[in-house]
Design a binder for these strands. Structure first.
Lengths: 216, 216
DNA sequence: AGACTGGTGTTACCGCGAGTAACGTATGCT
DNA sequence: AGCATACGTTACTCGCGGTAACACCAGTCT
């Protein structure tokens, strides 16, 4: 009865192959950005297109598999920052800094993670698919952060709802500011982190008006 | 000497044509989303592709022209909310609400505005184009809001820098929260606006810890 | 042994969308 | 008249996502 052992070996072999393919794809994406073609990836892996399709279904499948790896890594780094035993403000700053450091260190990966949802709507359903534009990564981060907030912060009634809103809002803030910063590099990472934390800490509400016209 | 008058007439005629084409493109994008093809747009306009290319250069050109119209419209609506003669908190809420109302009213347009930068980097420059992913719309809103803040709010030293950071951060927050909300519709627009304003007003800093584990 | 199954791999193709070349055709200027 | 300059067309190239059809090489079942 060699069946089970044989099947098992085959399975692990397939998994190893899959990982090899993913690593090849990773290299190509790192080089060519998110518009890396299936042809290029196949070439890098030393094989041809149909094999990729056998393993991942379609381009979206490959990209999703690729994105999951990086997203998981980023998420676990963020969780570490979020779980540090310190003051809330410090933890918030550490989380912001972790995210910004990650996108700073590997902008190509970051760019890839933000993109791959161009596939849009193959949905033949009628009605408007209102079309979530945001990258899955941001969605996931937002949900995750919302969960953390609702678990740890006392927000009174409707805390669940509020926490989710804040989770997505904060993630969006972090992302947009980070994206802009990455392009123009107008200041140090520390300063960016401090300014964003200040914003979350209500400094906008406290600041006084400037003379002339209505104060924002 | 009929030259100048003739040339002028030609020019205005060309401009009218261009506007007609843009309006046709608009209809198609409204119907098909951001992946509207040049063929489809040409068909809608009752002509063929090469004419589109003569007018707009390439797809990016057309999309940029299209986006500019909508962006300008949205921006002027936001400016109105930002210039209302009321308390700062009210103005902030009005601005958030204006944005959310706009994306709620015309999600297809919104989706289109968020997308069109897939063209990525045809830059033959070496080194990494760090790759700004954000839609031009968000960039513009962020800059604009940063300007408004730095003009009107007293932020002490480094106010310019801080204001820009906040501008981009707030816009990102608004966008991410709005995008998520538009997809899941977990609450009313009013509640969303109030929660986001609360976040900007420092309620995260004020809230108490919940028992068990570190408080975010 | 020989037929069967399931995996790996190939070449060659389809369909579609962006973008272009080459060619006509009206309109007004000189 | 002749010539420019726009407008417009048909018919193509090229690259990409995706697939069909076929070949090969294990190990398994009878």
């Amino acid at each position: 009865m060699e069946t089970t052992r044989g099947a098992e070996r085959q399975r692990t072999a397939a998994e190893r192959r899959r990982r090899e393919l993913l690593e090849a794809a990773d290299r190509v994406v790192l080089r060519d950005g998110p518009q890396a073609s299936m042809n290029a990836i196949a070439a890098e892996a030393g094989i041809t297109k149909p094999i990729l399709y056998r393993h991942f279904g379609d381009k979206g499948g490959l990209y999703r598999a690729l994105a999951k790896r990086h997203t998981d890594a980023l998420l676990s780094a963020l969780r570490a920052a979020l779980d540090a035993p310190s003051e809330r403000r410090e933890r918030v700053e550490a989380t912001l800094d972790t995210y910004l450091a990650a996108i700073e260190a590997r902008p190509q990966v970051y760019r890839f993670l933000m993109h791959p949802s161009d596939d849009a709507a193959p949905s033949p359903e009628q009605g408007f698919d209102v079309g979530r534009h945001s990258a899955p990564l941001l969605r996931r981060l937002g949900e995750e952060l919302g969960k953390v907030i609702s678990e740890r912060v006392d927000l009174g009634p409707d805390s669940e709802q509020t926490a989710r809103i804040w989770g997505h809002g904060i993630v969006g803030m972090m992302h947009a500011a980070g994206d802009w910063w990455l392009g123009d590099r107008p200041c140090s990472r520390e300063q960016l982190v401090r300014s964003l934390a200040d914003l979350l800490w209500g400094r906008l509400a406290e600041a006084g008006d400037l003379p002339g016209g209505p104060g924002f």
